[in-house]
């Protein structure tokens, strides 16, 4: 079993965000987290906004994704995400600001139903990014420059 490994590819409409072999992938599936190891059944999963954890020889990498899909087939995991960011690359400061902005607009009176859903989604995205950036021991908030 140790010789079988997963090939993980994280693609977004703009670019291939990341691609590497791995031993274990944990996905933020629609109905809860889902772990994938080599030899997994072919699966098509919808992803919620959340954290993707990739374990490669004991080393864990964290990514924040904002919804999308994953295809698991023949030990290949293809993640189609709308956006994907590695924990180290997340700008915690900006995520924080986005969260604040979303909170503020949520407090303003009578947002339309559509706006409310959008604000909630924005909040969820910002929260996920913040959580992931903390998990990955990401860079501290940048000051200046």
């Amino acid at each position: 079993m140790s010789d079988k490994r997963l090939t993980v590819e994280l693609v977004t409409p703009e670019k291939v965000a990341w691609s590497a072999p791995a031993d274990l992938v944990v996905l933020p599936a629609f109905e809860g987290e889902m772990g994938v190891m080599p030899g997994h059944q072919s699966f098509l999963v919808q992803l919620a906004a959340g954290e993707v954890r990739v374990t490669d020889r004991g080393e864990v990498k964290h990514f924040a994704v904002s919804g999308g899909f994953a295809e698991i087939k023949d030990d290949e995991v293809a993640l189609f995400a709308e956006t994907a960011e590695a924990a180290e690359l997340i700008d915690a400061e900006r995520a924080h600001q986005a969260l604040e902005r979303a909170r503020r607009s949520a407090l303003q009176k009578s947002p339309g139903a559509l706006d409310a859903a959008e604000i909630e989604a924005a909040m969820l995205r910002a929260k996920t990014r913040l959580r992931v950036s903390r998990r990955g021991g990401g860079a501290p908030p940048r000051t200046g420059g």
Binding site: A29, F30, E31, Q41, S42, L44, V45, D74
Partner: peptide
């Protein structure tokens, strides 16, 4: 064809 599992 692989027999896919689907979630949801």
């Amino acid at each position: 064809l692989p027999d896919y599992g689907f979630e949801p």
